[in-house]
């Protein structure tokens, strides 16, 4: 009997060998729910059908018939398939919406394969679909074959796009004022960065790339509305891949809209040091000797105006 080579979904306990025949206890309920969850989480076939085999190699139709009643129109397998398709289409859509850049980089087919492999290994562990992509950058590193030969760039784009989710709705803590900062000497002062702020040092200008993709997609949507009853809009214009160049990006929001701000290497060092819990004096020292006090003063003025600092 052929055995499944699928990874066990992270966090999910193994299903029972057979579905419970009666449901008398909480353990029976859990066993039934594990059985069905495992069936739904098995990736669909290339034709988007329920996997033909169960984890132990038995036909899925036999397993489905153990716990789902057929009716006069649909077999147990077909009824289970409705839920499996619903599950996969829903979670793939969830990741799809949050990653226009990664999609453009890989192309729809490769992106879809990546997302299916990712969700097969890391199904949702959160009550909200907002967190579906949280482990995607990690997965891209762990399983480079889905993104080769552009794994490093794909990783950078995925990190950048996840940072946008964080910037969208992570907490905003009370902003530190200049007066509050002035009360503590720099040698003792530790500033926190707002939870919605992400600091990214990446080897490609992924912000420009993702912005270009979004602009193209928005224009295409507008064109598609304009010619709703006419000819189809032109095929998607390919966005050139970014050229390798080290950039430092702060993904944040102000006041409720998403922004990406480039900082230079010295500024990034200061922000990273502050985020790591260094005192203000040590963080500024981390920037190196080429930075003037005036420059530092200007940076802080901007960062404070943007509300990036909070109490630690």
């Amino acid at each position: 009997m052929p055995r499944s080579t699928l990874p066990t979904p992270s966090g999910l306990k193994p299903p029972p060998k057979h579905a419970p025949r009666r449901l008398r206890t909480d353990a029976d309920l859990r066993a039934l729910q594990r059985m069905m969850t495992h069936a739904l989480l098995q990736p669909l076939t290339a034709d988007d059908e329920l996997a033909p085999r169960w984890r132990d190699g038995r036909p899925m139709a036999e397993v489905a018939a153990e716990f789902i009643k057929p009716n006069d129109r649909l077999s147990s397998f077909e009824r289970l398939q409705i839920y499996a398709r619903g599950y996969w289409f829903r979670v793939i859509d969830g990741v799809y919406e949050d990653h226009p850049g990664l999609r453009a980089l890989l192309g729809d087919k490769k992106f879809s394969a990546l997302v299916r492999a990712y969700l097969a290994k890391y199904p949702s562990r959160s009550f909200t679909m907002r967190n579906l992509s949280s482990r995607l950058p990690q997965f891209i590193r762990e399983a480079p074959r889905w993104t080769a030969p552009r794994t490093a760039l794909a990783h950078a784009v995925a990190r950048f796009e996840w940072a946008q989710t964080i910037a969208f709705d992570a907490a905003a803590l009370p902003v530190l004022t200049a007066a509050e900062i002035a009360r503590t000497p720099p040698a003792r002062l530790r500033l926190g960065l707002q939870p919605y702020v992400s600091l990214l040092a990446v080897d490609w200008p992924v912000d420009d790339y993702v912005m270009a993709v979004k602009t193209r997609d928005a224009l295409r949507r507008e064109a598609s509305h304009a010619v709703e009853h006419g000819p189809r809009p032109a095929a998607r214009k390919k966005i050139p891949l970014p050229r390798r160049r080290r950039v430092f990006i702060v993904v944040h929001r102000y006041p409720h809209r998403l922004y990406y701000k480039r900082v230079d290497s010295a500024g990034f060092k200061i922000l990273t040091a502050l985020a790591a819990g260094r005192t203000l004096a040590r963080a500024v020292a981390a920037a190196g000797r080429g930075v003037t006090p005036r420059q530092v003063g200007e940076w802080f003025a901007t960062w404070m105006e943007l509300g990036w600092f909070c109490r630690r």
Partner: peptide, 9 residues
């Protein structure tokens, strides 16, 4: 959901 894994269904 079961064992903290969510189907969002």
């Amino acid at each position: 959901s079961v064992d903290g894994t969510f189907t969002h269904d």
